[in-house]
Design a protein around this nucleic acid. Structure first.
Length: 423
DNA sequence: TCTGGGGTCCTAGGACCC
DNA sequence: TCTGGGGTCCTAGGACCC
């Protein structure tokens, strides 16, 4: 544990989170290759244990492929309710050493411990003790990167995995970054990687040696500029608190189905309801409604509409979503005359969000104002929704709704909730 | 035989305004 | 009558992240 001065950022990241929880809950799974979600028959793997990762299995992979790579793999159903609970427990431990903490997903957070060193010791000592506490009190492995900036800390935690701690001393930053593959930089995905590779750029050191102007030409103005700066180890970002969500959405994969009016209406109604309920719960509403339609083969299109006034009423959102979806589906049917249009996914999202008190101001238009009629209808719909929200809060989600209960494929609602951001 | 669900940010063209 | 520059908003698509 070395002496260390200046800004001290930690990036803490639970290892193979869902899979580690399953191994914690069921000791017979420990030390074995497992996948959460998916099956040999289909579905996607949500997370793989390190024993499975060694075979090349990873999250997002079809179950069938996972079985091919690792014949002995065990597929387990997720205990989604426990994930949130355990991750919250971990975050509470992290919060014990500093209030300057930025949770960036269910299982990952940045901490600025610059102000904590006089209380708890050097940053790497703090990190070490956090890892021990998480292991002892929660039972899960967690990796932590310690460095002067967010970017360095994040890269360090990736290098530390699994179940490790990596400190990047300020005088060793260049030496640390240079040999690492560009893919470790936050924001470099498969496309950017391929473009860089075509220029012979594989390592962060090589990227840093490339002129920012060339990188911008290669990867785009904004992305190129940012990635260049990160490679050059210039990262001015501070650890901030939680930021408000800028959009709220829901989607449903449907395999492959004919786009019949009944199917489209039922699915969009359900998605619009999920979105609208979440908006109302946070007293927010949005002016832009976007619908995405995906066709077999992963090709997808979006149609969006920006309204003069924000919406949060389920029925209004459903109507707009239907209109947008049919706009897209109609274009698709003209592309392929005489064929039944098939779809594989529908999504509804609301953006351009405002706080709801702004909506209520909009509703307070004087009598005779042409906007009044629409607003009154909107107010009535919101009132119905508010009653429905209250009934559901007391008796459960299935108690009331606009639409008959429908089958929703295999994705449990508690998994959906895990992925939700704080609105 | 194409793979879930939740997000963020950027780009580019067009409309419109000054 | 023709031309220039700058800014904002909207729409559609796409890369990327967990």
């Amino acid at each position: 544990m070395g002496m260390y001065s200046g800004a001290a950022i930690l990036h803490a990241d639970l290892d193979a989170f869902y899979a580690s929880v399953e191994q914690l809950l069921d000791p017979s799974l420990r030390g074995r290759p497992i996948a959460v979600g998916g099956s040999a028959a289909g579905g996607v793997v949500l997370a793989a244990s390190y024993e499975a990762k060694r075979f090349g299995v990873s999250g997002g992979m079809p179950g069938r492929r996972a079985r091919e790579l690792c014949p002995r793999i065990t597929f387990v159903r997720g205990h989604f309710d426990r994930y949130q609970q355990l991750a919250d427990g971990v975050m509470a431990i992290l919060r014990d050493v500093t209030p300057v903490i930025e949770r960036i997903s269910i299982d990952e957070a940045f901490l600025d411990v610059s102000g904590s060193v006089h209380l708890f010791g050097p940053p790497d000592v703090i990190a070490d003790q956090l890892r021990r506490r998480v292991r002892r009190e929660i039972g899960l492995p967690i990796s932590i990167g310690v460095a002067r900036t967010k970017h360095l800390a994040k890269v360090a935690s990736q290098v530390a995995k699994p179940d490790g701690l990596v400190l990047v001393a300020p005088e060793r930053e260049r030496e640390f970054l240079d040999p690492l593959p560009v893919a470790l930089i936050w924001g470099i995905g498969p496309v950017a990687q391929a473009r860089l590779r075509s220029e012979g750029i594989h390592t962060i050191g090589q990227l840093a040696a490339t002129s920012p102007a060339s990188v911008r030409r290669l990867l785009g103005e904004a992305a190129g500029g940012k990635l260049s700066a990160l490679a050059l180890n210039e990262d001015p970002r501070r650890v901030t608190g939680a930021t408000r969500a800028r959009s709220v959405g829901a989607q449903s994969a449907m395999g492959r189905q004919p786009a019949t009016p009944d199917t489209v209406r039922a699915v969009l109604g359900h998605l619009a309801d999920r979105v609208a309920v979440r908006l109302r719960a946070k007293h927010r509403a949005g002016r832009t409604v976007t619908v995405r339609v995906r066709y077999p083969g992963m090709r997808s299109v979006t149609r969006s509409l920006t309204l003069g006034e924000p919406v949060a009423a389920t029925l209004t959102l459903t109507e707009i979503a239907e209109q947008l979806a049919w706009q897209a589906l109609h274009e698709e049917s003209q592309r392929r005359p005489g064929e039944q249009v098939q779809i594989s996914l529908l999504a509804v999202s609301v953006s351009n969000l405002v706080a709801r008190h702004a909506v209520q101001q909009e509703l307070a238009v004087p009598p005779g104002d042409p906007r009044r009629e629409g607003s009154e209808a909107g107010a009535a719909r919101l009132a119905v929704d508010t009653s429905m929200d209250a009934v559901r809060a007391r008796f459960g989600r299935g108690a009331v709704g606009y639409l008959p209960a429908m089958s929703r494929g295999g994705v449990p609602d508690d998994f959906r909730e895990l992925a939700e951001k704080e609105v």
